[in-house]
Design a protein around this nucleic acid. Sequence first.
DNA 1: TCATTATATACTACTATAGGTATATGCCCG
DNA 2: CGGGCATATACCTATAGTAGTATATAATGA
Lengths: 114, 114
Amino acid sequence: MNVNSAFAIIAEPNRRAILGLLAQSERSVGDIERALRMPQPSVSKHLRVLREAGFVEARIDAQRRLYRIRPEPLREVDAWLAPFRRFWSAHLDALERHLDRMEEAPRRRKGRKR
Amino acid sequence: MNVNSAFAIIAEPNRRAILGLLAQSERSVGDIERALRMPQPSVSKHLRVLREAGFVEARIDAQRRLYRIRPEPLREVDAWLAPFRRFWSAHLDALERHLDRMEEAPRRRKGRKR
DNA sequence: TCATTATATACTACTATAGGTATATGCCCG
DNA sequence: CGGGCATATACCTATAGTAGTATATAATGA
């Protein structure tokens, strides 16, 4: 599987973790390294992949590079999801009512499926 | 990379194509095979991966299996995107004008003005 | 029953990628 | 200018996953 589509890029859990961090704020490589407890070369390599795929961009601050999100590729993913949303948004109201009822109702049986 | 997360499953382009088809309607293996011009074993194998990951379920109709979408795993993906939406929703109006010009919108988003 | 259609699985080979380790590059400051 | 910090890259290895081919299973209808 080639890492060329946005989907392949975010298939890697560490990269998703990095993106999750950067969603909060700009961070240096060292910040990420410490926050995620990953070896530095690993962080740099994942950042390279993310950068080349357009998910992040770097800004130089002395010896550090501050990385931040670039949203475009994630928007692609979001767009791809569009045709599927009807599977849940259509029934969202009914589902919400259902969940509301379950939450407030006393438990009648345990071990519900799914 | 283990194919255990929803993200790894949809990293494979053929699987996304299959899901795209099934988003429209239930289909048999043969339908998919013809629509996507893929070898039948390949279709079956991808469907197996999708099924075991909860993206699709099969219903038996004589010798055929009719596959259809199960939305849960895709909702996970949708949920993961939440923290990133602020990066583009702020500029959504401009984005929509842009998209209107590029592709055309098959479905108008409701209540969004420009 | 047999032939045919529909789908699944087994097996092999290839390739891409992630992790680990070592080292290189580059910048700052004393 | 040299030492130390921050980051990047090169190299190697292991492994997961896909495609391809052949074959198995199962249901149908003649």
